[in-house]
């Protein structure tokens, strides 16, 4: 609190631009985490892929997560336009799509546990990557919910949506890595 107010007083030290840059660097740092995790797939099992993967389910959860990014963007537009009702609608839609994604992931885990167990090879990579990403989706949902609960200030909402979009974008790399290559 103290530091926050002290800096805000100084000319040229706009708190939002400081926090925005911090968020971008945090996102870059997280991106490297996923880059390293994704690289283990190719180092460990090359392009090997089990036939038991549920391809329709994989495509479906991907579509769900992508549309959640669109609705999150629509929510920020509504907030900027001062349309409180539309804003709440799109936030709830985004949260719901995120929960559906996690549900689909749980289904995939239940199926995959027997077909390609986490004890070796592809299974190790699959459960670790989807587990890490799932934890990020969950944290993204919590952040989005906290930021939009009291939307007096547009910046926390924009920040939460930026993080959410990042988490969705990561899936755009994980999905082909696990399902298509």
């Amino acid at each position: 609190m103290v530091g926050r107010e002290r800096h805000a007083e100084r000319p040229g030290h706009d708190r939002t631009s400081i926090e925005s840059l911090g968020l971008w660097i945090f996102i870059a740092s997280e991106a490297f985490l996923f880059l390293v995790l994704i690289s283990t797939r190719f180092a460990l099992v090359g392009f090997e892929r089990p036939a038991e993967l549920n391809q329709p389910l994989g495509a479906a959860v991907t579509a769900v997560l992508l549309s959640s990014s669109v609705s999150a963007y629509a929510a920020t537009r509504a907030l900027a336009g001062g349309e409180a009702g539309r804003f709440r609608l799109f936030v709830r839609l985004t949260l719901a799509l995120g929960v559906v994604f996690l549900g689909g992931l749980a289904l995939e885990w239940a199926e995959g546990f027997a077909a390609f167990p986490p004890a070796r090879g592809y299974g190790s990579v699959f459960f670790t990557l989807t587990g890490f990403h799932g934890a990020h989706v969950l944290s993204g949902l919590v952040v989005l919910w906290l930021a939009t609960r009291r939307a007096r200030d547009p910046w926390p909402v924009r920040a939460a949506v930026r993080y959410w979009t990042f988490v969705d974008a990561v899936w755009l790399f994980i999905y082909p890595t696990l399902y298509l290559l």
Binding site: F32, L44, R120, G121, S124, T128
Partner: peptide, 24 residues
């Protein structure tokens, strides 16, 4: 900010191998 992720992953995967029985 960039490279530390790599060793963190190495340590995490070792823990996953030990505790959850993955095979990295």
């Amino acid at each position: 900010a960039v490279f530390t992720q790599s060793v963190a992953v190495a340590m995490l995967l070792t823990l996953l191998d030990r505790v959850f029985g993955t095979g990295f």
